[in-house]
Design a protein around this nucleic acid. Sequence first.
DNA 1: TTTATTGTTTGACAACGATCCAACTATACG
DNA 2: CGTATAGTTGGATCGTTGTCAAACAATAAA
Lengths: 107, 107
Amino acid sequence: MRLLPHPATENIELTEVLRALSDPVRLEIVARLAVAGEMTCTVAGDDLGVHKSTASHHYRMLREAGVVLTKQVGRLKYMSLRRDDLDRRFPGLLDSVLNSVLGVGRP
Amino acid sequence: MRLLPHPATENIELTEVLRALSDPVRLEIVARLAVAGEMTCTVAGDDLGVHKSTASHHYRMLREAGVVLTKQVGRLKYMSLRRDDLDRRFPGLLDSVLNSVLGVGRP
DNA sequence: TTTATTGTTTGACAACGATCCAACTATACG
DNA sequence: CGTATAGTTGGATCGTTGTCAAACAATAAA
């Protein structure tokens, strides 16, 4: 198991997070991660309506913005929301976004 | 006094709001409006480090995304945050963003 | 070792966006 | 009317981004 490169919590930038969340495809991915927790790229990207290379591009955007954490296990890559990191840095932001997308709050 | 064209509250899209807030210059404008309330474009755009036409471009982005309301009085245009509209549509979102930018909550 | 699975990379392309400059419009003020 | 003020628009430029397709890399399974 190995971790991919991610920005440290204190280096997560608000504008980059907002930018990352401003794409419908990425917002859908984030919503799925919020509901189902950790999941592989294939599952997260199922039926998104975009090519798998496009989805891969979005995974990278999310990771580099500090929104998701990705760890590799074998040939699978598991993504999960960096909820605690985001909440420490921008309190309430992710919750309000998820609330608007999902119509519910934190589980 | 006349109002410029704006999206109705129910037509404000989350991704467009996030996109509008994801630019540093626009975020600074929004922060100023949050602190000082209604202000003219000239005041809101003072010392932003960009050309006035660039600032004008940003005003438009913010207006079309539903973030600000613009009304013209004589040759002045007054901008203000659509706090209530945004809060009804995406509860807590603007507050959390402003909180992260300004380090304080709603006045 | 061959084959299948998982995901990334590279290249190409079109669209968008941030920026500046110059010209323009509209309103107000002498 | 002539001039200053407030802000927008159009053109040009340059970088970014969302997309697909094809090739690739890495790992697991047969």
